[in-house]
Amino acid sequence: MQSSSGSNPSQVAARNCRRLQRELADLITGGIFHVEEGAAGSTRWVVKIRGAEGTFYHGEVFRLQFVFPPEYPIEAPEVVFLHPAPIHPHIYSNGHICLSILYDGGWSPALKVESVCLSILSMLSSAEAKRPPEDNDNYVRTCSSSPKKTRWVFHDNKA
């Protein structure tokens, strides 16, 4: 667990530092997800997610990147899949994820890194077909680098 590059510990407010410290400790003891990169003072974590048995993604390992704003947990973290992203109707090929809890209106400070990972795992597991979103090419060409700047329309409430 090395501190990731490109993050400035001084940006992390004291409160969110304390909270991230606890979340990191809980993630490690929880043992469901493997933290590849991340430190309590770091604003960028990478967490490994394994596709569940009996689903389209069995045997595949994906890497989720969390970037925490200084206002975290009042503000949602920015969550994207690092390349290669899973092929999924709600996940764009650039790693952006169409999941309401990740954005304004769906995020709540009662959520945490672990619950976000669980939600994404459950979204993967409940896929009915392994195909990219219909508007993938158009979205990937036009979207901003941060998925938090996208105006998301959530069609599916099953995930």
Binding site: R15, R18, R19, R22, E23, P109, A110
Partner: peptide, 8 residues
Amino acid sequence: VECAICYT
């Protein structure tokens, strides 16, 4: 029990 937001 610690606060759900700040974990303190």
